[in-house]
Write a protein that binds this DNA or RNA. Sequence first.
DNA 1: CCCCTTCTTGCAAGCGATTGCAAACAGTGT
DNA 2: ACACTGTTTGCAATCGCTTGCAAGAAGGGG
Lengths: 351, 351
Amino acid sequence: MSDRDQVTIFDVAKTAGVSGSTVSRVVNGYEHIAPRTRAKVLAAMEELGYVADTRARSLAGGKTNVIGVLVDGMGSAFMTELLRGIDDAISSSGMDMMLCTTNSRVGKEVEYATKLANGMVDGLVVAIPSELSLYLSTLKDRSVPHVLIDIDNEDRDTSMVKVDNRSGARRMTEHLLGLGHRRISMITGNLDVESARERIVGFREAMADAGLVDTDELVVPGDFNRPSGYEAAVELLARPVPPTAIFASSDEMAFGVMRAAAERGMLVPEHLTVVGFDDVPESSWVQPALTTVRQPIQEIGRRAIGLLLDEIRSPGGGAVSLELKTSLVARASSGPPSDVGAMQRHTAPQS
Amino acid sequence: MSDRDQVTIFDVAKTAGVSGSTVSRVVNGYEHIAPRTRAKVLAAMEELGYVADTRARSLAGGKTNVIGVLVDGMGSAFMTELLRGIDDAISSSGMDMMLCTTNSRVGKEVEYATKLANGMVDGLVVAIPSELSLYLSTLKDRSVPHVLIDIDNEDRDTSMVKVDNRSGARRMTEHLLGLGHRRISMITGNLDVESARERIVGFREAMADAGLVDTDELVVPGDFNRPSGYEAAVELLARPVPPTAIFASSDEMAFGVMRAAAERGMLVPEHLTVVGFDDVPESSWVQPALTTVRQPIQEIGRRAIGLLLDEIRSPGGGAVSLELKTSLVARASSGPPSDVGAMQRHTAPQS
DNA sequence: CCCCTTCTTGCAAGCGATTGCAAACAGTGT
DNA sequence: ACACTGTTTGCAATCGCTTGCAAGAAGGGG
């Protein structure tokens, strides 16, 4: 289709009165080129409106200047933010992005990884939380530079960037404990995801440190999405002895919790403390603003691209793992426990 | 990089004991192939784990099986939804997507369009609301199939899909009028965008029909994003005679308005009616749920891809324009105006 | 003024796949 | 058995660009 009247390197060569190879060298910034020749070529390129054909370029051994991004889906606010960071970094590096979504279709990841590895891209960043990292071997075999995001892989041989989920969850739990809460419930993320599990660990650790060991029934399953937060909260709030604080493993789920609370006529944080994890943009907008564990989402994306570019530009640098810090953002949705449903409150009340 | 030990069509050919061309034909589902040969080739492909090299394939004249998507950015909920629809349609058609964002960088659109048109993709869907459609000529010159989304272009020669913004806005305004509102304010979208302008027209028409002609100071500028809605609302609500209803040209902005109202201690819809446009998922989640004009966002994306695929598969079908219908979704954020005295007591603080 | 080194630049061989053309094969009808 | 039609395959040219190799040009030292 597009092959009609395409301006090739040879057209430029002819107008500039040089050979095709010379044009190629000019285009690729080769150094040993007479200034005058370079100028002529540049002029010809300009005149003809030459644009390199990515396909041919990469087929012949050059770079594609495209970075592949493999994600599960782009529905969540977290992913949107992550993609922003990634996109930002990619485009300011002058490269282009090829986004592929697996939409949780099993096997699609491998298919994409193979296809992309087959010359479509110079490098790949993968943000699919899945244990089945079959695609990893493909990537390695073909030695395609790649970076994993938020995926825990025993294989210390792969570059990746993640955040300190465990201590983030821990700190948040301590915050809640400090406020005087004891019956703190956690709604987990999708347990297939490593970071979801780490958050649980952080939560349990903090609880245990406070002498609260029997947390089993306080930890209820969710999947990071809003509806699951809502449903979990409906169930929790309907219990004979409901929790005074709910720690959702994602802000998205926390919004679901808030809704469930509102429907029950409960005020946040007066009757129920609700906190989340992620700090997506919406969190500072909701009413009341959400107390949450902030992870530098866009930064994660930018860092991943940074690592990838390093590897692309100078291969063989070895795998690098980055763990970014999380921080607690205390806003309006958390407060001391209400004494309304007060059972034996052997807890030190705050102000 | 990736060129190490790649399985080519010739490797398959050798294992199957046939020629490369035959393998190519099998891969592309050519008909005149002896069943037995086909079987042998298929077996060899399977055995070697052959994956076609997209670059080579398209260079040689085949298709890339990649659809390019050109958008401004993916931050907004609207865009997220649109991309979902697009992604959905693309992947269920077996093709892949290449997403490029211009991030409002001037000129980037043309650069991308050219590059993509240069063989990277089989077709292109563009969703950049901009008057400057310089890229259009490139697309046409190279006869790359393309579809425009939500872009109004006089050029009846380009396929596009959009929604009926005008009557949507009109109907919403009538709804507000029907509720008894008279001082209805509209916060506009980015005026560079055609659909933003159409919504204003719909609003003005309905107001005029109700005898409300002097709407100039009721229409205030926004840019579709949340903060602009917030700011506009802050200004509106501080007026000596504030509107009783605010019609935001996007749900995003409506959320901003809700926040401004909350900060002023106003209840929605008791003291202020707030409505939006789009019906993004969040709209049914907020409290109170937002009354809005629904546009089938994902559907828009799906339709656009449908049109594009048609054109790719059988070129020359001529341009097709689709205009999808909008519909009014009445939820909790709209109600009759609060009593006239409200303004006299310059928005009294609540409880 | 010649020889050697350092620049510049062109030639030509790929990269992996598609495809027009034509040769090699069948299958039929007579 | 022969010409004829239609099916299967392989050959080789191409797509646009990169790059190793080597030749021509330019500059320095002896």
